[in-house]
Structure formats: structure tokens, C-alpha cells
């Protein structure tokens, strides 16, 4: 039984097909990457697994269970976590205050507990707080726990977002361009973090544009183009796949091309 299995997933927006009949499997404990040119449907693909969008047709199985129409928050409780391209953190609050709420889904305190400050509320606040410390330690931000998010660098914010997802006790984590907008040194650090996550037993699925990073990191890569899967395989297989090369530039090295494209966009 595959860990996550997608069968014939199609998503249409009006007349536009964003994801086109994709079959795909994500293996447990591995790092899977999804690449493709802009507008290839990568983020839509995430939103489908995650539950933000319902597919037009096809089914999604998570540990054998049909989650095609499961609401986002229920998916999270089952163990599906994700981050966004923009971190969506609460800038005025401290790092730890941002992360504590990540464990909320594993607590049961209600309004009643809040007003009467019941024992359950106190215990669960403590549990969520400990969890936050633990995940901040995991991502290496213990020393920034008390800093307001607005004062920490971009790379640290990405780590906070990962810590937040980690606080939900996930089985799988979907990372939407975790390395966008940070420098090569920091990218390396983030790769290490992703490996550490995978080593701790959390399955990783990431969208990424930075080819060098992906080639050194992923166990498996899927290439999307115009919503359709055009290739999947190990980094070496993808690098040498003529269809992929064709899709990226009509000839040439996809890695070089994508990197060039990126430096242009960022004006490096």
C-alpha cells in the first residue's frame, strides 16, 4: 500500500485545466520533489492533496484512506502538514507565540476551559508550549524564541513556518518553495533541515525551483508541465530525460536554465 496515492487527478478551473489526469505516489519517509515551469500546476497540486481544492475527478488515498473530499483541517489532524510560499506568520508576535498554536489540533480545551481556566486548559497550554520549544529546537531557532517575528531574518521565518507545521505532529509535510528568496548558504542549511525531517520519519514533499538543491536532496522527482506529469524518477533519470529537457527550454540543460532564470528574476 502506497503512503499517498493519487489516481487520475484532474482539476479544472472554468475551462482551464490546471492539473491534468495525474497518477502519482509518494513513498513514506522519502523526500519527493515536484518541479516544473511557472504555471505548471504545482501549487494547485498541493492544494488538491491538502484539501483546499476538490479535484474535478480522481481520488487521493492517504495510508489507504480516501481523503479526496476531506476538509483541510481534518487532513491536518490525519497528519498532513504544509507550508506556504509566503509564511503568513503573525509579525508582531514572538516566534514562540506563533508556534504554540501549531499544536492546537492535538488539544481539546474549549471556550469553557478558557474562561474558567480549568486544569485541562493549563495542562494543554503547557503541552503546546513544550511542543513549541521542542520544534524550535529541532529547526535550530531556540535562541530566537522570544524575538518578534518582524525582527528576524527571512531564512529564520522559513524555519518558523516549518516549525509551525512540525508542531502539528505530521506524518507528511508539504513544503511550497521553502527556499524561495534566500541565499545559497541558507539554502544549504534548509536542505540539511529537510534531510533531518526525513530522517526523523516525516515524509517530505516539496515544490522547488532551485535545481541544484533538489538534485542533491530528492529521492524522487516528478515533473509537471501544463498540469500534466511528463516525467518521474530519480534526480539522475530526470536530468537525462529528453522530454524534461525539451519542456524546459527546447534543448539544453534544465538545471542551468532554471538557475539562470532565477538569477534574472532576482536580479543577482
Amino acid at each position: 500500500m502506497a503512503f499517498i496515492q493519487l489516481k487520475g487527478i484532474t482539476k479544472k478551473f472554468g475551462g482551464l485545466t490546471a492539473v491534468d489526469n495525474v497518477d502519482f505516489e509518494i513513498e513514506q519517509g522519502k523526500i519527493t520533489a515536484i518541479i516544473g515551469p511557472n504555471g505548471a500546476g504545482k501549487s494547485t497540486f498541493f492544494n488538491l492533496i491538502n484539501g483546499f481544492h476538490k479535484p474535478t475527478s480522481g481520488t487521493i488515498l492517504f495510508e489507504g484512506k480516501d481523503i479526496t473530499n476531506t476538509p483541510v483541517h481534518i487532513g491536518a489532524r490525519l497528519g498532513i502538514a504544509r507550508t506556504f510560499q509566503t509564511t503568513h506568520l503573525f509579525e508582531q508576535a514572538t516566534v514562540i507565540d506563533n508556534v504554540i498554536v501549531g499544536h492546537r489540533l492535538r488539544t481539546k480545551s474549549k471556550l469553557y476551559d478558557a474562561i474558567f481556566r480549568t486544569r485541562r486548559e493549563k495542562q494543554e497550554e503547557q503541552i503546546a508550549y513544550q511542543k513549541a520549544l521542542e520544534v524550535l529546537d529541532f529547526v535550530g531557532l531556540t535562541h530566537m524564541a522570544k524575538a518578534p517575528v518582524s525582527t528576524i531574518p527571512q531564512e529564520a521565518k522559513k524555519r518558523v513556518a516549518i516549525a509551525l507545521a512540525l508542531a502539528t505532529d505530521p506524518k507528511v509535510m508539504f513544503l511550497d518553495e521553502p527556499a524561495a528568496g534566500i541565499n545559497p548558504d541558507e539554502t544549504e542549511g534548509l536542505s540539511q533541515l529537510m534531510k533531518k525531517l526525513a530522517a526523523s520519519g516525516i515524509t517530505i514533499c516539496t515544490i522547488e525551483h532551485k535545481m541544484q538543491m533538489i538534485m542533491g536532496l530528492a529521492d524522487k522527482i516528478m515533473v509537471l508541465n501544463h498540469g500534466a506529469k511528463i516525467a518521474e524518477g530519480t534526480p539522475t533519470e530526470i536530468k537525462n530525460n529528453p522530454i524534461v529537457i525539451e519542456a524546459y527550454l527546447g534543448g539544453g540543460d534544465p538545471v542551468a536554465e532554471v538557475n539562470r532564470h532565477h538569477s534574472e528574476v532576482r536580479g543577482v
Binding site: H73, A93, R104, R117
Partner: peptide, 29 residues
Amino acid sequence: VRIVHSLTGRTYIAIRNSEDLAQTLGINT
């Protein structure tokens, strides 16, 4: 004060901050 300083309050702030993010954190918005 009790509400704001509780897990419930944190949940509300998370929703204010980003409903999408709150949902992915397992919060029934």
C-alpha cells in the same frame, strides 16, 4: 482576558492572521 490568553484565544488570532494557514494547522475555522 481569559479568552485572549488561552488556547482558544490563540486559535482566534491564528484565524485572524491567515485563515488558510489556520486550516492547515488543523483548526476548524
